[in-house]
Nucleic acid binder design. Sequence first.
RNA 1: GCCGGAGUGGCGGAACGGUAGACGCAGAAGACUUAAAAUCUUCCGCCGAAAGGCGUGUGGGUUCGAAUCCCACCUCCGGCACCA
Length: 867
Amino acid sequence: MSRSTDATAETATEPASGRRERRYDPATIEPRWQRIWEEREVFRTPQDLTELRRKPKYYVLDMFPYPSGSGLHVGHAEGYTATDVVARFKRMTGFHVLHPFGWDAFGLPAERAAVREGIHPAVITQRNVDNFRRQTKRLGFSYDWRREINTSSPDYYRWTQWIFLRLFERDLAYLAEVPVNWCPALGTVLANEEVKDGVYVETGDPVERRKMRQWMLRITAYAERLLQDLELVDWPESVKEMQRNWIGRSEGAEIDFEIDGHDGLSFTVFTTRPDTLFGATYCVLAPEHPLVERITTPDRREAVRAYVAAAEQKSDMARTDLAKEKTGVATGACARHPVTGARLPIWIADYVLMSYGTGAIMAVPGQDQRDWDFAKAYGLPIVRTVQPPADFDGEAYLGDGPAINSDFLDGLSIAEAKAKMIAWLEAHGKGRAKVQYKLRDWLFSRQRYWGEPFPIVHLEDGTVVALPEEELPVELPPVDEFRPTDDGRPPLARAGDDWLIVELPDGRRGVRETNTMPQWAGSCWYYLRYVDAHNEERPWDPELEAYWLPVDLYVGGVEHAVLHLLYARFWHKVLYDCGLVASKEPFQRLFNQGMILATSYQDASGKYYRRDELEERDGKLYPPGGGEPVTVQLEKMAKSKLNGVDPMWVIERYGADALRLYELFMGPLEQTKPWQMEGLEGLYRFLCRVWRLVVDDKSGEPSPRLIDQPEGCEPELCRTLHRTIKKVKEDTEALRFNTAISQMMVFVNQATASATLPRSIVLTFLRVLAPYAPHIAEELHRRLGGEGLLACARWPDHDEALCAEETITVVVQVNGKLRDRLEVPPGTGKEELERLALASETARRFIGGKTPKRVIVVPDRLVNVVV
RNA sequence: GCCGGAGUGGCGGAACGGUAGACGCAGAAGACUUAAAAUCUUCCGCCGAAAGGCGUGUGGGUUCGAAUCCCACCUCCGGCACCA
């Protein structure tokens, strides 16, 4: 027995309930047990290392939510239920479990609500957190609430700032002039993921590109390790692949091109195909390339300036969208081919992006379709340098083949030619092998109020310095409004001089940074703070980190597949390099829960209706005013689609246990699946059947079928019990909750049909049920006179011998078709099975007197007679 | 276009290469009830009176045996998308 079981054993003697409900009534029993768990602090994880080291650890983590005003939805509840079942199960099987919860509480919605309502975002956030917490608690999760964190609390963001200083010290944080998504209506920059089709996704306000001086984090310095270390983690292959694509590693070469007539002036291109250098017939610079202005010849100046100006106006989206047709203009300048010395015209075109590689390319139309299209459009020459196969009828040829028209490379395959060309370039100082990544540095500042202030001061002489650690936290100052200033400076610029003006300990004076950090900052390290949530000296105790990390199971939506998970991995690796964490990767196993869909009803004009507004006539649904029947479809739950399901509404009707079971019974956790209210009723009925195993619902007294005999007096039920213990254990470990629940249903169906119910069998079953439906399990356990709390109980052992079948059905097939079944004891020998099969009346009819060619016998499975 | 993932009853879904459809929902019949609800029992892939035949998106293949492995294709979902 675990220590905590002893500590709570006395609860068994206390009356849990004033009166005894007859019928299953989750509304009374659930709050009662939640109160008991909370009062006895049964889910409090020890903090003392000596005690912790007595048991193995298991860290099971949910992606913490942004506490939005609309509250918890059934999608949250699915993931949280899954981790809760795992947490409760792991506790029962002898682990110290870390299962914490908290709030990703900085963010734009609270700030926008603050502007709208004229209330401080902290107040709005607190209101939402309180609501979210109350709802979350009502589901009966076994979180250690003492470790609750809130990223917007100064106790927390003090350490977010502290980690930023570590990044700054290591030159991983820097200021740079970069193009950003500026939304004039909101007066702030937006993250890339908040902008689609040139507008802010929430409000539809247009977004423009603007250059601003911004904080950047040098995540590109970690590109290779972020890529390589994906090998170390147990994540869905799809998520790893998305991260690999995002990092976008490609091998190739940089090649230097001198500009004809500009002594010493050159530019560098990146190419993955240095083998095709002899096929380069022109070069292209991105319109923003710094050399454009200098090299453009006077006769081309006007056209080039017009093109550059037009490109600047276009959003990224417009640039890629309109780019079916390639456009560009010649600069009039020419580059020198690094091998042949030939003059190659230099063009500018917006199909070349300044943000990737060097912002310049050598164009090889023979082997690149984009270059082919451009060359065709502007009448530029095309030279093939890889021999296409005889039957090739395409344009640019991307396949392998012998090099042609390529001087010293002729006849070589692509791979050989690449190696040889790189060697030549390096030998002649005209280029070098190069690994390029798509990943870009992370734009880390926002012109917002509701985020972490930077612990940074701009001195009068223009230098940028970090605040000393003792000055942390830099708290958010009070401001009169949460909008940017009229001249476009961030909201923090509204703070008074007593906040803005800083005198450093050495007497130097400066102005505070007025940008704030993006919402991702707090979520980059919250999983570390949980191990030591109240440490005021340090962000966490390294020994606690070494004990608990990495997270053993991390569950959340796939929408964070790239950004959050990449950013957090990046910070973790920096912390590793600083010697602050002992683990290379933060999240050992990642699991994405699937989206939950719901039926939505939409009329021809696109208007959505709630189901209860519609009238049903001859199998069709009509809108309230009549007219055409509505379209019925399955869509992601959304407020705008009026198809959301409120978990609190479900709990009022069916209870948290039924909701928990339904969330997991719907189907595999990772799968997208539709919500069906009827299915939920099935789970409620299941719990009613469980209730009636113990309670006679006419009298409220214990069921008369309960007996105090040993479990062996109902041998069949006893076998099913042991099979259930085993299967639920295996399925829970593998996160196959739906099949675990179905096995519990099999048990309950059989128990319902049983004439007598040995009390010990029911008590054992309740321990199996407890991680899934903890409230009803505790209540019935108590009513049966069970000791202690199930929340602290040990998982029952199953008896392997009892799990085996007494007789096994062995199938008889003739030519692979099922013809008969044999009931035999397990382990019946091959010869015996073959004899029985060939003796089978039905099988003989199909064998038809022929001599079997072959007989395949799989013991305990089947006999296949081939004739 | 490229990269992932998935297609099984009326529905959600089960099935170490070995009895396809566990479990649940919906449906049908019956019991209990004055009646209804609740509960309980039985039935429930398709064709067929039965014997049996046909069935896991489509077409091939491997195998004694394929929902499961291989090839090609179709459809749906997700991600990326001029990344040189």
